[in-house]
Design a protein around this nucleic acid. Sequence first.
DNA 1: TTAAACTATGGTCAAATGACCTCTTTTCGC
DNA 2: GCGAAAAGAGGTCATTTGACCATAGTTTAA
Lengths: 193, 193
Amino acid sequence: MHPEFETYLQAQGSLPPNVIQRISDLAVQKTLRRNESILNTGEICRHKIFVLSGMLRTFTTSADGSEHILLFSPEHNWTLDPASYDQQVPSRVSIGTVEPSDVLCWHKSNFDALLAEIPQFRGFTNKLISRNIYLNRERILTTLSGTAEEKYDGFVRMFPNYLLRLPLRMIASYLGISLKTLTRIRHAQLQRH
Amino acid sequence: MHPEFETYLQAQGSLPPNVIQRISDLAVQKTLRRNESILNTGEICRHKIFVLSGMLRTFTTSADGSEHILLFSPEHNWTLDPASYDQQVPSRVSIGTVEPSDVLCWHKSNFDALLAEIPQFRGFTNKLISRNIYLNRERILTTLSGTAEEKYDGFVRMFPNYLLRLPLRMIASYLGISLKTLTRIRHAQLQRH
DNA sequence: TTAAACTATGGTCAAATGACCTCTTTTCGC
DNA sequence: GCGAAAAGAGGTCATTTGACCATAGTTTAA
């Protein structure tokens, strides 16, 4: 049904083929253009999302219109707003595409059914959650520590391939610094070549 | 065995008395003085910790000796380093007391046994994990957004009671600003009374 | 294809912040 | 209770950062 997703799940190694088939069968594929929204602030997050291709971002919009990016989700990542999804309450964040993207969606009722029915799948999602917690901690640490330049260098080290795919202003927004500061840093690094 | 903990678990509402007893029986209580360490960077986190009384902090120490506080854990909170605990690898953070504290510890082997044996307890810890993810997202958001003063105001709004219990330098360390900046903000707010 | 929107860069200036220092007060541990 | 240590406030100065502006190049969408 969704061969690329099934290949991904096989590669994770913990789920037998019939289970993978069952999970895949409940997914609905969507194709999104660049800069298209998939969840707006205030809406309820009703789906788990797996990114087949492209790149999504999770962000907030402040009263003054400025945006803060919490997370980039490139291909082969899961994403959603956990607070909104778990409690089915309005979301405080938005999720949208940075590039044209293909995603798979599971409605919460279907996903819950899969979890209830397949113990190994619970184990699998638990691993995803652990990883998520770990990444969030890393994010907090790097956000707190060091100068703007250290944050940028850390970003480049952690996600070298994002540099070519994202506009600098989004990287600045992710790092919590102004675009001006970011271009200054890059300029200085070029000088030192 | 640990009446205060059992009262806490009862109040959470999802676990029957015999289960609570079983969980409580496997805990070991420790009494810690102020500024005592319970996990040092590089050690492996082998226990789940529940804070009966007092206040713990999770923090990192940089090469230059500066500290960044990830999390405060006052009474009736659970804490650990998830990355180190889950994988049993050396921790990158330290955990220690801010105040004299009493904690309960479950060794991972015991805690895993409880999870295997008691489905409702799995549900309970899953809720804790959800809440943890939510709090981490909030933390990232407030760290990214706004000026030092907005972060401080947010902190006061979120944790009004912490103000009286924590030295300002730790609040500054939590917010990722210098003590100087924090005292300046407080001074300015007093002027405006 | 062409106009409009977006992107990155640079200049300038003011404001925010941190580093380093001192001093006084408070708190802690014995 | 006492001595030592820590905490908080303030002063000064250099640096970093952001806001605002303009411009040139690029990409997008009609």
